[in-house]
Simulated assay, not measured.
Amino acid sequence: MTISYREDKCFTPEQVEALFLSVGWLSGKYPKRLAKALNGSDTVISAWDGSRLVGLVNAIDDGELTAYAHYVLVHSAYHGHGIGKELVRRLKEKYRGYLYLLLLADDPNNIPFYEQYGFTATGSTPMMIMTEETP
């Protein structure tokens, strides 16, 4: 298995759908909207096994001080191969020099993964509102 990494937005709705659904994420049920949202991100770093999208991290930023990583995910069949580690490394490199790089670890079981790369759980309570689902 040879994994390549790209910082572009060259993926199809079907490719992001397969990736997101492989880990059970709700946004994968809306592949066209998801692809559009990713294309609107400031940064998308993706991992590929040939033509198969196997990992992705995205971020939005203010251009100077703060970046927010929303998605960090690796296809379920590719867990344990260092892909997540490399995606986070590349994300940190991209935003080196920013004052804050924030991400939401919505599953407490993922906190140790992020802590090993220098992230700190702040104890803050993230808040969100989920609007009514639309197709």
Rank of each mutant, 00 (worst) to 15 (best):
I45V: 06
T134F: 11
K29E: 14
L34R: 13
G50K: 14
Q15F: 06
G55H: 03
D42M: 06
E86V: 06
A47I: 01
G55N: 06
H70T: 05
V88F: 04
G40I: 02
K32D: 02
L91T: 09
N39D: 02
K36N: 13
Q116T: 13
E115P: 01
Y117C: 00
R52M: 05
K36W: 14
D107S: 06
E14H: 07
V44Y: 03
Y114H: 12
D62L: 10
V44Q: 05
T134D: 09
L65R: 15
Y98A: 10
L65D: 04
I111P: 02
E86Q: 14
A121L: 13
V54M: 07
A121M: 09
Y30P: 03
R33A: 14
S51D: 08
A69Y: 01
M127P: 03
P108A: 11
P13Q: 06
L87T: 03
V57A: 14
N109D: 13
K85Y: 07
E17G: 01
G50S: 10
K29P: 00
V74R: 08
V23Q: 12
V44E: 03
G84T: 00
E115K: 12
V16D: 05
T122A: 10
F20T: 03
N58F: 00
L53G: 09
S124G: 08
T120F: 09
